[in-house]
Every structure is written in C-alpha cells, then in structure tokens.
C-alpha cells in the first residue's frame, strides 16, 4: 500500500459518499446519470467476485463491501425510491450503455491475461470502468446544470483514477515484475475521458464562476 493508492481509494470513497449524501439528504438525483450508476454497480459486481474466496486484507474486504453496497443502493434509490426517482431525468439520460457493455465483454474475451471466468470478468470490469463515466458526461453536456455536488462527484471520481496512475508508476518503480498493461491502459483511457471535464472544472473553480461545459 502506498500513499497514492490510499488517497486514490479515499478519493473514490469520497465520491460515492458525496453522491449518496446528495441523494439521501436532498432526496434528489437531478443531473445524475442512472446509466453510469448501473455501469458502476456492474463494475463492482464483476470485479469483486472473489471477495469471499481470496482474502487480501481487512481493509480490502471492507472497501469492497462499501463499494458494492453504495453502488447498488444508489441504483436502488434512483430506480425505486418514490421521491428520488421523480427527479431522475430519464428523457435526457438516454445513453445506450449496452453499446458500452457488449464491446467491453468482447474485448475482455479477446484481450485478457488468462482465459478463465474470473480473469475475464475482472478484465471486463476494468474496461467497463474505463467508459462508465460517459453517460454522466453526456448528461452533463445536455442538461448544462451542473450543481456543485455533481461536479464534485465527477471530479473526485476522475481524481481517484489519476491517483491510481501515480500508484502504478510507484509500484512499477518499487516492485519487480509489476507490469500490468491491461490495467494501465484502461486506467489511462479512463482518466483521459475526464481531461476536458477537469479543465473546465478547475477553470470554473479558479475564476469562481459556475461550471459550464461547452456545447
């Protein structure tokens, strides 16, 4: 464990806490893409298959349980909670995430480290995580109204993966044989997808203006 990875995990945890707080306290999910939340639930469901078989550490198990619980409860809130679901923008949140899931599945069947069910599912979860933010970014472009909690959520989500890249560089430099191209490339793609959001987010923060994404 290194500081980059720990702060990455904490940033990731913060992002889901911010989102849950927003939905739970103001009972609204305006501006949040259900598609992205469903993709994240899928990411954790397919990545943490070994949660009860391969014990890594108490920290690892607790964090996995938290990510599984938060991602599925956010999806539940947005789909079934009688008040929250009313603020879900289903007309605007129309990204067909099946067109993201299928290519990721095919790619995971072709490009993986070992052709076993667990390994293919794990690789699949990496590819899905890389593109999971797309419906959310599309929704932000469309609705224009980025309330600051949603902005913070997306920012923290991007920052977590950026910190993970520093973690992989650190581990590559300090551990022999730490070479994981699939993880690195999908993590890099994921972070790059946030690049323009980061640009506009930091600019709006610096100029202290409301965050506006270009058309």
């Amino acid at each position: 464990m290194n500081i980059f990875r720990l702060s990455g995990d904490m940033t990731h945890l913060m992002s889901v806490i911010v989102l849950l707080l927003k939905i739970h306290t103001i009972k609204s999910c305006a501006g949040i893409s259900l598609k992205t939340q469903e993709l994240y639930a899928l990411v954790f469901a397919t990545r943490y298959l070994d949660i009860f078989t391969d014990f890594v550490s108490v920290y690892n198990t607790i964090m996995k349980l938290i990510f599984l619980a938060t991602s599925f409860s956010i999806v539940w809130y947005m789909r079934h909670h009688k008040i929250v679901r009313r603020s879900y923008d289903k007309e605007q949140d129309t990204f067909r995430h099946l067109f993201l899931i299928l290519p990721c599945l095919i790619l995971a069947l072709v490009v993986n480290e070992k052709f076993t069910f667990k390994e293919v599912m794990w690789t699949f979860s990496l590819y899905v995580e890389a593109v999971a933010i797309l419906p959310q970014l599309v929704l932000l472009q469309r609705t224009k109204n980025i309330d600051n909690l949603t902005g913070q959520y997306v920012f923290l989500l991007g920052a977590y993966r950026a910190l993970y890249i520093l973690n992989w560089i650190y581990r590559y430099l300090t551990e022999k044989h730490f070479v994981h191209w699939i993880t690195w490339i999908s993590g890099l793609v994921q972070t790059l997808l946030y690049a323009d959001f980061f640009y506009y987010y930091i600019n709006s923060w610096k100029n202290n203006v409301r965050l506006q994404l270009p058309a």
Partner: peptide
C-alpha cells in the same frame, strides 16, 4: 494462494 499483485487493488 498469493493473489496477483494488481489484484490486491480495489
């Protein structure tokens, strides 16, 4: 079994 190093990540 030892988990593959990158698999100990979240």
């Amino acid at each position: 079994q030892t988990t593959d190093s990158v698999k100990d990540e979240l």
